[in-house]
């Protein structure tokens, strides 16, 4: 009992001292140097715009911008042959990072690259030009966790258009989740993307979000994907699902998409790893404004509005 008390006291003291020693840095220039100097639990306030690539490896840090100034950007002028060959604007490896009130711009590169890490984006805007907003992967033993709240991803060239007969060019991808990644996305807004989400990861919960004028909003290739209370408007294709994925669609609203939902009905011979949909589709209370054939869906999958 005495030794337990001792350990408890030790833990409290340890916790208190580590909290007391967490520091706040104000970064004005050379962000990577500030990151290198920071230790677990530290807060880095961005007080400038940074045109550099940065990486956080094996640390727990929080980046925050107080005003409009906090921007991390990288514009790669040369036309990259393979975007994955370049380091992302922000690279996280075995790290736990929060980004709050920050703008990230990525041109011809990936905005945020994650390997075996945990990231929380709150009130973040990612502006892309021929780039990918966020790519999360893990190795066999590792795991990645992505939490998004009030996140906006848009293409720099994107201009909102009205009407169905608009011609759009898509050049960027919003979020690519794969391997052992869990994604929680609440209240996000993605427009003008080739693909808003490519989901090839273990599990996702995407809710209260808007997807408009994308080529494909959600491309589901595997995993357990839960799509709840979202709005899909004016997309070429709102959702396409393939392979053995498990898809739950609850209370989503589809309006003026060329196609609301496609479950791949035959194997794609020229596409590796892409077979027809043999997974599970569950759902109820979804609303579609288009005249699609609703016979193949279970009762209450579509709400009769």
């Amino acid at each position: 009992m005495k030794s337990l008390k001792k350990w408890g006291l030790f833990l409290i003291v340890f916790l208190f001292t580590s909290l007391a020693f967490s520091e706040t840095y104000v970064a004005e220039n050379d962000l990577q140097r500030v990151i290198d100097a920071a230790k677990d639990g530290d807060i880095i306030i961005l007080n400038n715009s940074f045109n550099e690539k940065v990486e956080v490896i094996g640390k727990e840090l929080k980046f925050i911008s107080m005003g409009e100034s906090g921007e991390i950007s990288f514009i790669d002028d040369k036309n990259t042959e393979n975007i994955f060959n370049e380091k992302p604007v922000i690279y996280l490896e075995s790290a736990t990072v929060t980004l709050e009130n920050i703008k990230i711009s990525a041109s011809n590169v990936v905005g945020i690259g994650i390997l075996n890490s945990s990231v929380y984006l709150k009130n973040v805007t990612i502006e892309l030009n021929n780039g990918i907003g966020l790519v999360s992967v893990s190795n066999e033993k590792g795991e990645s966790y992505v939490k998004l709240e009030m996140v906006k991803i848009l293409d720099k060239k994107y201009r909102k258009v009205s009407g169905k007969n608009a011609s759009l060019t898509f050049s960027s991808v919003g979020i690519l989740g794969s391997y052992n990644t869990t994604i929680i996305a609440n209240n996000i807004d993605i427009s003008g993307m080739k693909k808003a989400f490519v989901l090839e990861n273990k599990e996702s919960y995407i809710f209260n979000s808007n997807f408009s004028e994308n080529e494909i909003s959600l491309m589901i290739l595997s995993g357990n994907q839960n799509i709840i209370n979202n709005k899909f408007k004016l997309n070429v294709q709102a959702i396409v699902a393939a392979n053995n994925s498990s898809v739950s669609l609850i209370n989503n609203y589809f309006d003026e998409n060329n196609q609301d939902l496609e479950l791949l009905s035959k194997d794609c011979s020229s596409c590796p790893k892409t077979k027809k949909f043999t997974g599970v589709l569950k759902g109820y209370s979804n609303v579609s404004k288009s005249l699609l054939i609703k016979n193949n869906f279970s009762n209450h999958f579509w709400d009769n509005e």
Binding site: N82, N85, M219
Partner: peptide
């Protein structure tokens, strides 16, 4: 995108390339 995945130097890029190319290059029915 896909043929040169193995040639990518960093581990993250290699993994991302192997899983990402299909989604990026897929064109929907229209």
């Amino acid at each position: 995108c896909a043929l040169f995945c193995d040639a990518i130097g960093n581990f993250w890029g290699k993994l991302a390339c192997k899983s990402g190319c299909l989604g990026i290059c897929w064109k929907p029915e229209r």
